[in-house]
């Protein structure tokens, strides 16, 4: 991300320091992760300490300080999915991709995250890949779904 892009986002919020989280969300959604230089630029543009930005970027789940893979897998671990066996789905996906939640594989193919409720409880267990929900998952079915991604 270059300075111009960052300045544009900052300007959208009139350089208001209280909009820090909103600004980081916009950068995250445009760039899919928060590079260190971007954080430095935001700190200077808003005149807020880098410590505060670092805390926010690691405190909230929406932010990532490392680049993401081509496909983002979100496995719902909400209570409804949990009682319907979501952890068995997670185990299987972990085994297949070789990564744990929060990680990206070496080929940059998949990033894996657990989420706390996608609110599609009727379809549980649910996994979401690149924003598309796949419902009524079971370990073997989840592997079938993953095969469709390159």
């Amino acid at each position: 991300m270059d300075k111009e892009q960052i300045d544009k986002i900052v300007a959208k919020y009139h350089g208001e320091p209280s909009a820090l989280i909103q600004i980081l969300l916009d950068i995250q959604s445009e760039n899919r992760w928060l590079p260190g230089e971007a954080l430095q630029m935001v700190a200077e543009a808003l005149d807020v300490p880098l410590t505060r930005i670092q805390h926010i970027a690691t405190f909230y789940k929406a932010f990532s300080l490392v680049p993401k893979g081509r496909h983002e897998i979100h496995i719902c671990m909400g209570t409804a999915c949990h009682v319907r066996g979501a952890s068995r789905v997670l185990d299987t996906v972990e085994g297949h991709t070789g990564i744990k939640p929060g990680e990206t594989d070496l080929d940059m193919k998949f990033s894996l995250e657990t989420v706390n409720c996608l609110g599609c409880c009727a379809l549980g267990p649910v996994i979401e890949i690149d924003g598309k929900p796949h419902g009524r998952m079971a370990p073997a079915k989840a592997l079938e779904v993953l095969k469709n991604y390159e």
Binding site: P49, L50, T51, R52, Q54, H55, T58, F59
Partner: peptide
């Protein structure tokens, strides 16, 4: 100075 801060939760 804000030379150190908290991270994560």
């Amino acid at each position: 100075k804000n030379a150190l801060g908290f991270i994560d939760r």
